[in-house]
Design a protein around this nucleic acid. Structure first.
Lengths: 343, 343
DNA sequence: CAATCTTGTGGTAGCGCTGTCAACAGTTGT
DNA sequence: ACAACTGTTGACAGCGCTACCACAAGATTG
């Protein structure tokens, strides 16, 4: 009957309140809304907390207040540079807010995503950011049950779960290929890897731009489900060359592949763009400093992360953005690797 | 007097227990240690939980049990590829365990690190992984107060807070430079950026290897605190060339710089390694596929992440590894970019 | 056959904090 | 002078779960 359970031994709010000579609830308010206290009490609580080294117990706070200040983030890969830029935007934006980020990695698996969503559900996050628009029905159900603002990022499409920030991968790839067509290239190959939904939509843009120019041919295409890498770029390009040795340009599903293609061209003594034009996708940092500089489609990844956090936090606080879908667009960065054919 | 506070409306454990015809505590046990229940009750609880769509409340669990199943991770950058490999190891290892990862980004600031540590402290994580060995005294105090297993990663050094997994950046850089010396290079430059503690220790390895060969000269060195990038590699190398046009090799503080140096050599029509040898640090994926392939020091980053999680989780469960410091070493990957001088 | 151990189950009492409401000044208006 | 405010404070109960203990029922022993 004495003490059924060992106290944690840590300083509790009650202790701080006692030392400060106020009630626990007043001390509690000090940590959440200091300006509601009179100046004198505010100082007393502050110094008491400091003296005791008080650290609030977040679990207790979450339980009592029935909410958390965590935004869950689901991304498919930590290795892919594309997502590290998005994450940087997310973390940067979260630092200006009261919310902290909880990150999870789906590894491009929609089943893994489903599981992680359930895990998040148990944490009752204040908001959620998920990658892409291709969740399972089950995942969508969980998201709807979570009853918190949700932003889907990286892409835009019809039927958002809640909000969306992204751009059209289809349009962007269409623009890149149309550029090559305009420059006078005729036999434009496509290399793709890690055929996730976004890569597939980019392929769709390539396909339709080629068809629109009456240049489409299946032999010009090499794709693989293998995770993308620079080295892989070299090998898929080699495959492409053996299927279609007469190609004069390559549209790469992303920049890693493009750099791999450039290296392979160097190895084969093919000059770029005279013998082979190259365009990439995403405009990672190295595209501009490669030799020759590589044409790519710039995507606003950092901004995407920032906006997603901004929209979600605003929604949490009741200020939903007027339109739920934000298209951040893209810019075609034309560089030497796609200079016009000079014949 | 009726209902002071609105119930959350969600299904609680009590509801599940009622439907299953067991006591709440039995239902609770089902979720934590199912094999402690008889088969019949186990099934009854399982189906009741499923039927009601029960989602446990993690905050309540954490409060009642006085612990969490979260491992906090502090890293200095999300953009740097080096850390994405470490993170991949961390996330991979955590998936095999019951623990989930909470990631925070210090942006190479030890003050930011201090703040984030305090934030973690409020969450009472089960374990902690921090980058490097250069924490402030204040940070160390917080870590010690946290009273949970802690792994410092990326480096090893004396006086671990608790455990360590890493390797000696000094030794690795020393080995890389000694290799260049052995190959017959005499005027070996150093380019460094983002002069964080690890970069500085690498520089120390360069300096001492050069001194050991009586080749050290301050004019061979260019460093900048600017965050590292491939483009920056080109510009620091240009600076180096204007200070010391006669250099025959460059030791790069990391691989991004090395690739930038390679591109700059291509731009200046310097052939590698005939006119300029290059070695990098970390052995990122692109080093082997560059033209020519670039020599680098392979560091076991993925393994570092995995081991850190393994050690921390083992320690949480009471099986501390016998020796607290794990040196994962490094391998010098000798490639064409450092082929011997042929004079 | 009683004495012991094991296994499964339930009752009780919190974990540390905050929502809700009430109360009590101190101020202002009429 | 009294009512009607505003700003600040406190009492109370409870958020949903689990630690702790107790105890019943079966298994094992001498």
């Amino acid at each position: 009957m004495e003490r059924k359970r060992a106290k944690s031994g840590e300083i509790r709010l009650t202790e701080v309140a006692k030392l400060a000579g106020v009630s626990p609830i007043t001390a509690s308010r000090f940590f959440r809304n200091p300006q509601a206290l009179s100046l004198s009490k505010r100082e007393r609580v502050a110094s008491a907390a400091k003296e005791l080294g008080y650290v609030p117990n977040l679990a207790a706070r979450a339980l009592a207040s029935q909410r958390t200040e965590v935004i869950g983030v689901l991304i498919p890969s930590l290795t892919n540079n594309v997502f590290s830029d998005v994450l940087r935007g997310i973390y940067d934006a979260s630092e200006g807010s009261r919310y902290s980020i909880q990150l999870a990695n789906t590894r491009y698996s929609i089943l893994q995503e489903e599981q992680l969503l359930r895990l998040f559900q148990a944490q009752k996050p204040a908001g959620l950011i998920v990658t892409g628009i291709d969740q399972t029905a089950e995942s969508r159900a969980v998201m709807e049950a979570m009853n918190c603002p949700i932003a889907q990022i990286m892409e835009i499409g019809p039927d958002p779960v809640d909000m969306m920030v992204g751009f059209s991968h289809y349009d962007a790839a269409f623009a890149a290929v149309s550029h090559l067509v305009e420059q006078g290239f005729k036999r434009i190959g496509f290399v793709g890897a890690q055929m996730d939904p976004r890569m597939q939509r980019r392929f769709g843009g390539y396909r339709d731009a080629m068809k629109a120019a009456s240049l489409f041919a299946p032999r010009l295409i090499v794709t693989t489900p293998v995770p993308t890498s620079i080295t892989l770029g070299g090998s898929v390009f080699s495959d492409l060359l053996s299927k279609a040795p007469d190609i004069d340009a390559v549209c790469c599903g992303n920049d890693d592949l493009a750099l791999g293609v450039l290296f392979e061209c160097q190895r084969r003594h093919l000059s770029v763009p005279e013998d082979m034009a190259i365009v990439g996708f995403n405009d990672l940092e190295f595209m501009a400093s490669a030799v020759p500089p590589l044409t790519s489609v710039r995507t606003n990844r950092y901004e995407m992360g920032r906006s997603a956090v901004t929209m979600v936090t605003a929604a949490i606080e009741g200020n939903r953005p007027p339109q739920p879908v934000l298209d951040l667009g893209f810019q075609l960065m034309i560089r030497e690797s796609s200079s016009p054919r000079h014949n």
